[in-house]
Write a protein that binds this DNA or RNA. Structure first.
Length: 480
RNA sequence: GCCCCCUUAGCUCAGUUGGUUAGAGCGCCGGACUGUUAAUCCGUAGGUCUUUGGUUCGAGUCCAAAAGGGGGCGCCA
């Protein structure tokens, strides 16, 4: 007999029919009621067992997270809590799960404990919900761009450029580390390496994305990204997924509009299509308050906060305005910021959090940052005071998770770009192709990067980014 | 890279100013019950207090180092 997924049974219960379901045991109550889930739904199907029909020894093996197949008749439930249930006629034990040495238990376990048991944590209600939502957000990303005529580009994972402008890179090599080939002058001879040159894992698909935008007009990338930073925070990973749209003829304002609309679409997609799933992460989200300092607690429930973000316009300010707001704040005047606020210095997390959580109490888009603190490819703004040059960069700051998007209008003027490449000590030969884009049929364009896991973190209300990716890679951590 | 915190039963935790035999809840195991919703009730077992070294008459408790974990900062998405 062919098995039916639990989601299908719950969606359109055919009372009176005989069905076969397969799944894992979430609980076995009263030696009579099995709560069975198979991943197709957030909900379980109640299987009713007449214990006199089965061997006692057999029923004892139906334990927490054991895997079984059940054949039986769907009937209307006599109990409260579910409308239909399955009367078990035959049960097949597919996989035992002895609680003696099994890692999980039907009780609250800490996120830290489950992180160490990543091969089982998706079986919990919280993590299965998180990964269903993760899927849904990924789907929404593609839907959003596809519906608007964007093309999905696959940019390379291995890059020969070490000037992508976004942090430390992981080296990719097939050289024998015990016996490195050397040039006459004693340096490592990368001509002997697999690609005939030094290569790394990508830190951004943006530069190649720009190539595509200069031909296809509107593109986006969505792929793995690698940064070898020693970041020990709840919002950094060494391997994460990033979405990077790049659009020809866009300026910084078009870019901000796209970013806001896009992010709201993602959240709305989850609110509209997954009304059940946010439930458990929401509990996690509110429960986390227990060990938190008062000032760090979230005042709103998760769904309320998601609605709030979707229903309000993001606040838009310039970097210069942000500095003014911060310097005029009571927090600043009382000397309560750890770091000084000064035009020309980058905003610190505490400053961003003040703007978002205290001052505006909604997502904030900050633009026009000082040229000196931003990447070489960002377009220099016209008409700024000498010494106060800015670039058309923008960051979108969210409550609790900070920067979720970073983007800019790109410098499309060849001479300006070359100037900045030189000023930052980058070898222009590295970027010859990037420079040529400005020489031959270039145009104004803009784009941004959205940290996928940060978005999922925000939407699920989880508190550590390592809990929204199945197998987190971070400094000192690559198990599973 | 810098700073802080944690490590006691399978899990989550308590353990007073250093003082006899280290406790609880849940889980496991055994039993009872059988229309339950993390079922309930009764009972049993379960600990080299992360490791190493030190202080002390005496260390789960104090000190130092190591290992593992968590958090903050920086870097950013």
């Amino acid at each position: 007999m062919k098995r039916t997924e639990i989601a299908e049974i719950l969606r359109q219960p055919q009372v009176g029919t005989t069905v076969k379901v397969s799944g894992w045991v979430r609980s076995f109550r009263s030696n009579r009621f099995i709560a069975l889930y198979d991943g197709s739904s957030f909900n379980t199907l109640q299987v009713v067992v007449d214990f006199e029909k089965f061997e006692e020894e057999f029923l004892k093996k139906i334990q927490f997270h054991a895997c079984i197949s059940v054949t039986g008749q769907l009937v209307e439930s006599q109990g409260a809590g579910q409308s239909v249930e399955l009367t078990a006629e035959g049960i097949e034990l597919l996989g035992e799960c002895s609680p003696d040495d099994y890692h999980l238990q039907p009780k609250n376990m800490t996120m830290e404990y489950l992180r160490e048991k990543a091969h089982f944590r998706m079986r919990t209600q919280t993590f299965s919900a998180v990964f269903r939502i993760r899927h849904a957000v990924a789907y929404a990303v593609h839907k959003y761009f596809n519906d608007r005529g964007y093309y999905y580009m696959h940019t390379p994972i291995v890059t020969g450029s070490d000037a992508e402008g976004a942090g430390e890179m992981f080296r990719v090599t097939t050289l024998d580390l015990e016996n490195l080939p050397r040039t006459e002058s004693g340096e490592i001879d990368f001509k002997e390496d697999f690609f005939g040159k030094s290569t790394n894992l990508t830190v951004s698909g943006q530069l190649q994305g720009e190539i595509a935008a200069m031909a296809l007009g509107k593109i986006y990338t969505f792929g793995p990204t690698f940064r070898a930073e020693q970041s020990y925070t709840t919002r950094h990973l060494a391997e994460f997924w990033m979405i990077e749209p790049e659009v020809a003829f866009f300026d910084i304002f078009d870019n901000m509009e796209l970013a806001e609309d896009f992010v709201k679409f993602l959240i709305r997609h989850i609110l509209d299509n997954y009304p059940d799933d946010p439930g458990l992460p929401r509990q996690a989200h509110q429960g986390r308050g227990k060990n938190m300092k008062q000032e760090d607690r979230r005042p709103m429930g998760l769904v309320d906060m998601l609605r709030f973000v979707v229903d309000n316009n993001f606040e838009r300010i310039t970097y210069t305005e942000a500095v003014d707001i911060l310097r005029n704040s009571n927090t600043y005047k009382k000397g309560k910021f750890k770091f000084d606020v000064q035009w020309g210095k980058d905003l610190q997390s505490e400053h961003e959090r003040y703007l978002v959580e205290k001052h505006f109490q909604k997502p904030v888009v900050v633009r026009d940052y000082p040229k000196s603190i931003k990447a070489f490819y960002m377009r220099e703004n016209d008409g700024t005071e000498p010494g106060k040059e800015t670039v058309a960069a923008m960051d979108i700051l969210f409550p609790y998770i900070g920067e979720v998007i970073g983007g800019s209008q790109r410098e499309e003027r060849h001479s300006k770009l070359l100037e900045r490449i030189h000023a930052q000590g980058i070898h222009e030969e590295e970027l010859w192709w990037y420079l040529e884009l400005r020489k031959f049929g270039g145009c104004p364009h803009a784009g941004f990067g959205l940290g996928f896991e940060r978005m999922v973190l925000f939407i699920t209300g989880m508190s550590n980014i390592r809990d929204v990716i199945a197998f987190p890679r971070a400094a000192g951590q690559a198990e599973f």
